[in-house]
Design a protein around this nucleic acid. Structure first.
Length: 418
RNA sequence: GCGGGUGUAGCUCAAUUGGUUAGAGCGCCAGUUUGUGGAACUGGAGGUCGUGGGUUCAAUUCCCAUCACUCGCCCCA
């Protein structure tokens, strides 16, 4: 039995579920391409270094969440835990950095060895966009606007909150980090055990703590805003102005921080309270140092990734997405199967969705036609074949007419049947 | 990785203090209906009680372990 279960945290996408994913991906694909973001795909596996160097040596993703294997040559290969680093690697590998800006869209599975929960899987699916080569805040605004367009298109903009924050540039962040550590060290004993660990590894994360005691201590903590240099402040202000100008609603949440090292300046998340402790359905930020860290030229970047699994959960809950209703071919019996299939093939070539019924007598076949939610049935038997006709039956009303074989397409179009 | 909850048919759930062949609804299959489906009625199939051990004359029920899901933490999309 155990062997017949899927691997923990990895789920089958049966047709109804898969359809939801396809709908979401199609919408992003459409929206992204309207802004000139072209779809691309990178391998599911990369050398470990691609992530280790860029995400940060102490990030949880790198230290404990990667699926890692040694290939036959002894190289350490990992299943990608996120999409951005792979895209960055790809633009360097392929020499695409010569001419910017570069705009990409991707969709696919990511893998993280975490404890599964609702909305948190070991094989998760993400969609994402990346904009390389634009240091100007207009790029940030455009990318966030793209995210907002997606949420609006999915009708989720009113069920999510767009929260933004700035992490500042490296100089600002370093200065703030020192101030924060100094402050928190004075309260070391009162911090939660988790935060005591974070103090060494990634002190900024403490800002995001859910521990009540931590929250109390943080009230007196220095604010990152106060450590921002003029340049960082201006970046953040211009982005806010841009969002307001485009009438994109947002909130500033100074507690948004990033687990990955490559982020700077803007950090944003679309959050929901509908998915338990998994609040973020889409998140992103600016990663100006990423490409150079990897050994490429110094090219700035900004982008986001959305969780398809989480979006699908919000979008459809338990409802099935609407499916197109097929036409169905119903031969009277086995003798007319090929005649029926011939008609089906003829209509399929012209773009009609046509399904066959297999085996059994008329009654049984109509029952099957009903089950697949067909709109119309073509009935073909002795009578029809001898007169060169076909019976077209409306499965909702029961009404039926006989048509000459060569009138089928014209009649379907006349009635607006797809 | 830490702490809690759950696991019985394809799905949603029953099963009295441990006691014979573990039930229902929905769904599925067949028939009533050999050129007409949806509704109704009748019948049928389908279960290693998540898995493995233990206690007991006897375990779906009690104990332990394990797996999966789930809630909170952690982390993140």
């Amino acid at each position: 039995m155990t062997a017949l279960q899927p691997v923990r945290g990895m789920h089958d996408l049966l047709p109804s579920e898969h359809k939801k994913y396809a709908i979401i991906i199609d919408k992003v694909r459409k929206i992204a391409s309207l802004s000139g973001f072209a779809e691309m795909a990178t391998p599911l596996m990369e050398f470990k270094d691609v992530f280790k160097r860029t995400l940060g040596d102490v990030s949880d993703i790198v230290t404990k969440e990667m699926y890692e294997i040694a290939d036959r040559g002894g190289e350490s290969i990992v299943l990608r835990p996120e999409g951005t680093a792979g895209i960055a690697r790809a633009i360097i590998s392929n020499g695409l950095t010569q001419s910017t800006p570069l705009k990409y869209f991707y969709a696919g599975p990511m893998f993280r060895y975490e404890r599964p929960q609702k909305g948190r899987l070991r094989q998760l699916h993400q969609i994402g966009v990346e904009l390389f080569g634009v240091a100007d805040p207009v790029g940030d605004v455009e990318v966030i606007a793209l995210a907002y367009d997606l949420l609006k298109t999915l009708d989720l903009s009113h069920r999510t909150t767009l929260e933004i924050n700035t992490l500042g540039d490296e100089e600002s962040r370093k200065r703030y980090r020192d101030l924060l550590v100094t402050y928190l060290k004075d309260h070391h004993a009162a911090l939660s055990p988790d935060s005591q660990l974070r103090l060494d590894r990634n002190p900024l994360r403490i800002l995001d703590s859910k521990d009540e005691g931590d929250k109390k201590i943080l009230k007196g903590a220095p604010l990152l805003v106060d450590s921002l240099n003029a340049f960082s402040q201006e970046m953040f202000l211009k982005i806010q102005e841009g969002l307001k100008f485009l009438e994109i609603p947002f909130m500033i949440n100074p507690h948004i921080v990033r687990g990955l090292d490559y982020y700077c300046h803007i950090a944003f998340e679309a959050t929901t309270t509908e998915l338990g402790s998994q609040g973020a359905v889409l998140a992103g930020g600016r990663y100006d140092g990423l490409v150079s860290t990897m050994g490429g030229p110094s090219i700035p970047g900004v982008g986001w990734a959305g969780g398809i699994d989480r979006l699908a959960m919000m979008l459809f809950e338990d409802n099935l997405p609407p499916l197109t209703r097929p036409l169905v071919v119903v031969p009277m019996n086995e003798d007319f199967d090929m005649k029926g299939l011939e008609l089906a093939q003829r209509l399929r070539v012209q773009g009609f969705t046509v399904e066959m019924t297999y085996g059994g007598a008329l009654g049984k076949r109509l029952k099957k036609a009903n089950k697949i939610n067909a709109s119309y049935a073509f009935i073909i038997g002795e009578e029809e074949v001898s007169s060169g006709r076909v019976t077209l039956k409306n499965l909702d009303t029961g009404e039926q007419v006989q048509l000459a074989q060569d009138q089928v397409e014209a009649t379907l179009k006349e009635r607006g049947i797809q």
